[in-house]
Measured scan of single mutants.
Amino acid sequence: MDSLVVLVLCLSCLLLLSLWRQSSGRGKLPPGPTPLPVIGNILQIGIKDISKSLTNLSKVYGPVFTLYFGLKPIVVLHGYEAVKEALIDLGEEFSGRGIFPLAERANRGFGIVFSNGKKWKEIRRFSLMTLRNFGMGKRSIEDRVQEEARCLVEELRKTKASPCDPTFILGCAPCNVICSIIFHKRFDYKDQQFLNLMEKLNENIKILSSPWIQICNNFSPIIDYFPGTHNKLLKNVAFMKSYILEKVKEHQESMDMNNPQDFIDCFLMKMEKEKHNQPSEFTIESLENTAVDLFGAGTETTSTTLRYALLLLLKHPEVTAKVQEEIERVIGRNRSPCMQDRSHMPYTDAVVHEVQRYIDLLPTSLPHAVTCDIKFRNYLIPKGTTILISLTSVLHDNKEFPNPEMFDPHHFLDEGGNFKKSKYFMPFSAGKRICVGEALAGMELFLFLTSILQNFNLKSLVDPKNLDTTPVVNGFASVPPFYQLCFIPV
């Protein structure tokens, strides 16, 4: 009986604490739906499609509103004006990374994606500088992407125009580009180590996009005490870190300090320079996690976009025909596509942009946080508050993009057929937390897609009208449904 009384008292205290925290903070924060004790607004949000729920709530509470995930307040920004004001106009104040408990377990605050403060700034600055020195957006990395595009075309030829699921092959190409940047090595598509790495990356994007992960991140005790797919994700990350550590040891034994070959060499050189400046942010643990982040951000996002792009091109054969006509006119058949071609191919450029806009790969991006107490639109948001960005509300804005739910390359073309930029184009987020590999991803999408369409016609196994382009999961990332196609050599 005594234990029951204690339990009831504990629960009562928890409920009172929950109510007090919510009521004391709500006077400062933007308005929002009334949260339930302990669980907050979790029942009012469709976990399978958070973005749709945010759109519905914005119609009631406006472009800036507050939700509670458990006891934790989260300020939501919906629509271009609110997102721009926060991420661009007040970029420094909104540059923090929001709480992501599962990532905390995986990387302990290291790396480039989930770190904060001085650690994040130094690692991000170093990573950007190193990638630029190796030619991100310049010639040397373009050579690597072109080489991988040629290998991709050869792998597709091996399908002999038979029906195939493109998931694996389209994942190999961007993964190999990242391998060449980090390890100075590309792998054969049949290499077992490479296959294991690909498998872990593919599993992780599916797990991260599941409703279960949303629950884990908002009720963090689940991570330590409950079984579930989150444990598989943590094991996959541990596998990748151990693999990278092996490569780091190989580099330490063979590195030429006067001739760095890749990202690992550059990081080890930085560690050597910083060894007298303790404590340094440049450690082996930081290198492991930064490399894992580059793999995660640079492989599955690009391969998922490529997979979605081919599905949309199957669905819209008239678009595919126009792209192939432009390829034939500008590039021809006797040389590989290059980035200089893009400025002469406005329709193809528009298609690449429209694919990214339409699929809305990361509907709410990753959570941000404010780095200080900030007054925002007459609300006071306390330091450390998590900020949720609705990228969907920007990419699918119906004023900027008429009929935003329709796939239409003319969203990025003017009346004369010239490519038209849009400030609403934010597939990689915006501001200080914009994806480090934005330029690389854009290069890969253009070169891989043009190389495929230069060499193959795409054949659907069903009537294009019957192809479903609805994402199968739409949590962290929008993942396309399973499909097969035939690559018919031109």
Rank of each mutant, 00 (worst) to 15 (best):
C13Q: 02
V177D: 00
L447S: 05
L445M: 12
S429K: 05
E326V: 01
F183T: 07
F100K: 05
L234A: 14
E326R: 00
G228V: 06
L362C: 08
E300I: 11
L128Y: 10
N116S: 14
F295G: 00
I389Y: 09
I181S: 02
F226E: 01
R132N: 11
P174R: 03
R333V: 15
E274Q: 14
C13T: 14
I99S: 10
C175S: 05
L152V: 04
Y243C: 08
F267D: 03
V292Q: 11
K273M: 13
F126R: 03
V6F: 15
M271P: 04
V473G: 14
N41Y: 01
I181P: 00
V351D: 00
F428R: 03
D256V: 14
L67G: 01
T167F: 05
N277A: 14
Q324L: 04
E85Y: 10
F425D: 10
P37W: 06
Y308K: 02
E154A: 08
L197A: 02
A477V: 14
I50D: 02
F126S: 05
L197W: 04
I389K: 01
Q192M: 07
L413G: 00
L156R: 00
P346V: 05
K315T: 06
G62M: 01
S478K: 12
K206P: 04
G96W: 14
K275E: 10
L294K: 01
I374G: 01
T385G: 02
G442N: 15
L234V: 14
E92H: 08
G111K: 06
G296Y: 15
P471A: 14
M198R: 10
S53C: 10
I244S: 02
L461V: 09
S162L: 11
N378T: 07
K399M: 15
P221M: 09
F239P: 02
G96H: 13
P35A: 08
N231D: 07
Y379E: 01
P174A: 10
E199K: 12
V394F: 03
L54K: 01
L294D: 01
T364G: 08
L306R: 01
K315F: 00
H344T: 09
V472E: 14
L14E: 00
P471V: 04
I47G: 14
T283G: 07
D265G: 12
P471L: 04
F94L: 07
G384T: 03
R105L: 02
Q356Y: 06
E154C: 04
G228Q: 06
F425R: 04
A149C: 09
G228N: 05
L67T: 14
G416M: 08
E415G: 11
Y189A: 03
L314N: 02
E81M: 07
M255V: 10
C338R: 13
H368N: 03
T66F: 01
P464F: 09
H184V: 04
P227C: 08
S115Q: 12
A103D: 08
G91W: 04
G135I: 11
V436L: 15
T167G: 09
N378P: 02
S242V: 04
L7T: 10
P101V: 06
G91C: 11
L11Y: 04
K52V: 10
V60L: 08
Q44P: 05
I169T: 09
P35G: 08
K235L: 07
Q484Y: 02
E85I: 03
L71C: 13
P402K: 06
T371H: 10
N176A: 01
T290Q: 04
A350S: 06
L366R: 06
I264H: 03
G62W: 00
M198Y: 11
M443Q: 11
L380G: 06
V75D: 00
E85S: 10
T283C: 13
M198A: 08
Q356I: 11
G27K: 10
V323I: 15
F419L: 06
P363T: 08
L294E: 01
K315P: 00
G228A: 04
H316Y: 10
L361K: 09
L208D: 06
P30A: 02
I50Y: 14
E288A: 12
V75M: 04
Q146G: 08
E281S: 13
E104V: 10
V237S: 11
I434H: 09
L43A: 10
L201F: 07
R333S: 15
I374Y: 06
M269T: 15
I213V: 14
F412D: 00
H230A: 08
V479A: 13
Y424K: 14
M257A: 12
T305C: 03
G91I: 03
S422C: 07
N56F: 09
V323T: 08
I389A: 08
T348E: 01
P402C: 11
V351Q: 00
N398F: 11
K206D: 09
N107M: 07
H344G: 10
C486R: 14
N334H: 06
K432T: 14
T229W: 09
D341H: 07
M136H: 15
G91H: 12
D143T: 14
L361S: 09
L233G: 03
G109S: 12
T371E: 10
Q324G: 05
L54G: 02
S365Y: 15
S140T: 10
L447I: 15
I284A: 06
M271T: 05
P363G: 08
T470A: 15
E328V: 14
H276V: 08
